[in-house]
């Protein structure tokens, strides 16, 4: 019998549970509050059991742990059958994944294997009877669409930072170790290495409180040092638009946007960025956005709290110098 539970696929990274796990729990908790059911978290990986407690303390009624050496490093090929087996046993009404590099690969495949459907990159969820209405931006956010999935389970991947994280819950959920058959068949994909990309002179983008980001308006890689100097003056992380990454000025790991990292810092300073929807999708969650652009009609000004219409080459030296003075006081 299908349940009315919501299953959350937790994610771990090098620093333990990823933030998205708590965002998924937050969205699931809100929805079961409106629709009934319980929140079931799945934690699959190798030596991950130490993280189960945090999920149980922050919104999961039950945490199902699959701890196996074959699940590390992550590959879709090994994780998929494990998730499918657990889903078939648990029969959740809905499954929430993060729209992360992992979720982007796993989600659609999971949906097709289970004979159901997925809505990817959702930013809002609402109940409608026993269905979940899933809102997703189209055309880079210029148009919004609400989808309903007729089949079961209803699967959705949630855009990072679009949903609030859960705090500590009143009661702690139970943690269960799952036995899953992982033998069987040779895999066709093998991990041979991991390359860490240098984030340049700035701090790590993820979780940065202040980000300075540069766009095509900077004119060329030779001007990138202006962005680095402003970031240094502020102790900020450095980001870039897709155009800048595609032009090869900076590595892909610096890209902020729909297909890069999604950030929500306290302060975001956009230099020479027009505000293409692709980029807006990655930073519109910032608390305060500052835009410096020579085009007064640039889309970025619709999102900015403070703006300067002018040539960045003239604006930045004064800004950097004055910030240094003010911060030294």
């Amino acid at each position: 019998m299908p349940t009315d539970n919501i299953m959350v696929i937790a994610e771990t990274g090098s620093e333990g549970l990823s933030e998205i796990s708590f965002e998924l729990l937050g969205a699931a908790q809100t929805l079961v509050g409106q629709m009934g059911g319980r929140v079931v978290a799945v934690l699959a990986g190798c030596r991950v059991c130490e993280h189960a407690g945090a999920l149980a303390e922050r919104g999961a009624n039950r945490v199902l742990v699959v701890d196996h050496e074959l699940l590390e490093p992550y590959r879709a090929e090994t994780h998929l059958p494990v998730l499918v087996e657990i889903i078939k046993r648990e029969e959740p009404a809905a499954i929430f994944l993060g729209h992360t590099f992992t979720g982007q690969e796993l989600g659609p495949r999971l949906a097709f294997r289970l004979g159901t459907a997925i809505t990817t990159d959702c930013i809002r969820l609402e109940p409608a009877g026993d269905r979940v209405v899933m809102t997703k931006p189209l055309h880079g956010g210029n148009v919004m669409a609400e989808y309903i999935i007729a089949g079961s389970p209803q699967i959705v991947s949630l855009r990072p930072h679009a949903f609030a994280q859960t705090g500590p819950s009143r009661s702690t959920g139970e943690v269960l170790d799952m036995e899953v058959n992982l033998e069987g068949g040779q895999t066709k994909t093998r991990l041979v290495g991991t390359i860490r990309e240098d984030s340049g002179k700035g701090k790590q983008l993820k979780n940065a409180e202040v980000i300075v980001s540069g766009g095509r308006g900077l004119g060329g890689a030779e001007n990138w040092h202006y962005v680095e100097e402003l970031a240094e003056a502020l102790g900020a992380a450095i980001g870039a638009t897709r155009a800048v990454v595609d032009a090869g000025w900076v590595p892909a790991s610096l890209q902020i946007g729909l297909t890069g990292t999604i950030v929500s810092p306290e302060l975001y300073i956009a230099v020479g960025i027009s505000g293409a929807p692709q980029h807006i999708a990655g930073m519109s969650g910032a608390r305060t956005i500052i835009a410096i652009n020579c085009d007064p009609d640039a889309n970025i000004f619709k999102y900015a709290r403070y703006g300067v219409v002018g040539d960045w080459k003239e604006v930045l030296p004064g800004l950097i110098q004055r910030i240094k003075e003010l911060r030294e006081k």
Partner: peptide, 28 residues
């Protein structure tokens, strides 16, 4: 398997405060 229930545009009002200066070097 996916049904489109509604399609709409979300209006966005600008609330930017422009910082002006002539020449623009002072704006920084």
């Amino acid at each position: 398997r996916c049904q489109l229930r509604r399609l709409f545009i979300e209006a966005r009002e600008s609330c930017v405060e422009l910082i002006e200066s002539d020449p623009s070097a002072g704006a920084g």
